[in-house]
Design a protein around this nucleic acid. Structure first.
Lengths: 325, 325
DNA sequence: TTGGATTGAGAAAAGCTTTTACCAAGTCCA
DNA sequence: TGGACTTGGTAAAAGCTTTTCTCAATCCAA
């Protein structure tokens, strides 16, 4: 204990926290000694008193981490300066496991919980609406009157289609995932709005093989072929690029392809590397982190859904701009 | 407080913890009331007293999470039943950030720390050797006298090469990553041992494009071509498969290809899906979790490096077995 | 009936920090 | 010189559990 080395016990606390009255010399001496003996206050004891544990929980059902990791990185990035640490709880889609983790977090007096997932229109398999700690939702469906952060898929899709139009593509097709996904419908809506209805939307699944197959379908149809493909995610885009190459069609010379997600491992390794839409999940995480912190500190935050803009990442699969960016 | 609802205060504690002496009827009543009002003991107060926070920290420099997520899943899986939650701290390769996170964890009285990374032969940019909490290393280089878990890359590589041999491949080449990686040398060593020196080892980088280029190199050389490719990771394998297809060489009919890592997103999406070696990182995480828990509880654990066996995942890129497995 | 053993439950301490109340000594001004 | 401040610091309470001690009542045997 620092007090042993210094002089008293409550004085030590005041010295280290720059609070209370005392001689400047005493304060300095206590601080110095504390530094020398490497004294660190026990956060448990502090938390017991202050009702703040400087700990939050991140709950996710995105086992693979495609979406969770960037969100986590953003949260951590925003909160580490505030001394807040993050419990990561991966609950598959198991309600019992989820409840176990939530209970464990509540026992540990987390200051708040961030719920995240892999789909904007699905709830986590656990009810977080009546907890006595603040909850914010990031990239997953929230409850009434909650604060929810999500990507603006409509704006992101517009970005993509407008980019294709800007570089001169006129017959733009849209190959995407299952129609029951909210993101799919929203992106398709934006596609229709910007590109008109000249080409159909091909709904399928989120896989490379679907991208591959969709290209086969498109090119087997009679009539003019598309000169631009807006794909619902990078995996589909990659499958499409592969299918085009197998048909001897050059990307981006003959056809421009654009993806969605900016999943580096797919987008950057495709030949040519994919131009794609980034949902800025890290920024999303950052804002979610700051928000849950604000709520934990009792500050008021307007409930509602906040849509964060996407960003276009230009690589080489569209042409139209110097590859060197 | 449960005591208000029940009868006393210390009696309540004893009732809920099944400790101390008291009438069975009283114990039952306290438990019932506690359940009714949803009483949950404050883990901070408990931890303050017991010196156990039921919290551990997971430190990683694997930003992308390729290796960390399975390890984390294993840890969490093993420890959730013990009521232990996990702080995830992603420290890029930034020593200052790492120290910040370690300090935050120590302040919060973690029961132990697991260090993990993306490379067996690299240390995290922070010294964990003289902490007063137990540290175990998983999939990263540990310190003297520490407990370290790692995959047995030699055994995994043997598994792969022996499998190729078993299905009749005789001219097996090895395309792999940079020679300065310990894993690369160990896998190459096993390759030499099993396959002999009939084919060279091609060292390169961990990318699809290297796999692609390596195949070009191999097939441009005069003389007999390989009929089996053992690739250092799944990305290289995927690049190789793509290159073979472009040359009109059938996989697995003409050439068998085997990868390493079982990175689902790459291995399962390759056409044909990759037979590959899984390092069982989840199991590795599980053991690391149980070990740090044992150390936290004061049980003795023999220091040293523990190598966990890899497992062969048979898909379709080798042939030799019914694809339906 | 009485002394020792047993039983049921409450009182108190400990764990570590922060905060509030308090005290002794010095300072100031009328 | 004596009341009103100011200064520098300590004592104590609070926050929530668990554990050890203590105490009163009951019970059994002699």
């Amino acid at each position: 204990m620092a007090s042993a080395a210094g002089v008293s016990i409550s004085t030590a606390s005041k010295a280290l926290n720059d609070t209370g009255r005392m001689g400047a010399e005493t304060r300095e001496r206590v601080k110095r000694i504390a530094g020398e003996i490497g004294y660190r206050p026990n956060a448990l004891a502090r938390g017991l008193l202050s009702k703040r544990s400087f700990t939050i929980g991140l709950l996710t059902n995105d086992t693979y981490g495609r979406f969770t990791l960037p969100v986590m990185a953003g949260i951590s990035d925003a909160l580490v300066d505030h001394g807040v640490s993050v419990f990561l709880c991966a609950i598959e889609d198991d309600p019992a496991l989820a409840q176990t983790h939530v209970d464990a977090m509540l026992d540990k007096q987390v200051d708040g919980i961030i719920a995240t997932g892999k789909r904007l229109d699905r709830r986590l398999p656990v009810d977080l609406s009546n907890l006595h700690v603040p909850v914010v939702y990031a990239f997953t469906e929230g409850t009434q009157n909650s604060v929810t952060f999500r990507s603006d898929d409509e704006q992101g899709a517009k970005l993509a289609v407008e980019w294709l139009a800007k570089i001169g593509r006129r017959r733009i097709a849209h190959i995407t995932g299952p129609e029951e996904f909210f993101s799919v419908r929203e992106r398709a809506g934006a596609y229709h709005q910007v590109a008109g209805h000249r080409e159909p939307v091909l709904y399928g699944v989120w896989s490379e093989s679907w991208g591959h197959e969709a290209v086969e379908q498109l090119w087997k149809r009679p009539g003019e072929k598309p000169d631009g493909l807006f794909c619902g995610n990078d995996q589909i885009a990659r499958g499409a690029v592969d299918a085009l190459r197998e048909r001897g069609i050059e990307v981006p010379q003959d056809v421009s392809v654009i993806g969605f997600d900016n999943w580096e491992i797919v987008a950057a390794q495709t030949r040519p590397p994919l131009t794609t839409v980034d949902m800025e999940l890290k920024e999303l995480g950052r804002q979610a982190g700051l928000t849950v912190l604000a709520l934990a500190e009792g500050r008021f935050v307007e409930p509602g859904v906040r849509k964060l803009p996407c960003r276009l990442i230009v690589r080489q699969s569209c042409g139209g701009e110097a590859p060197g960016k």
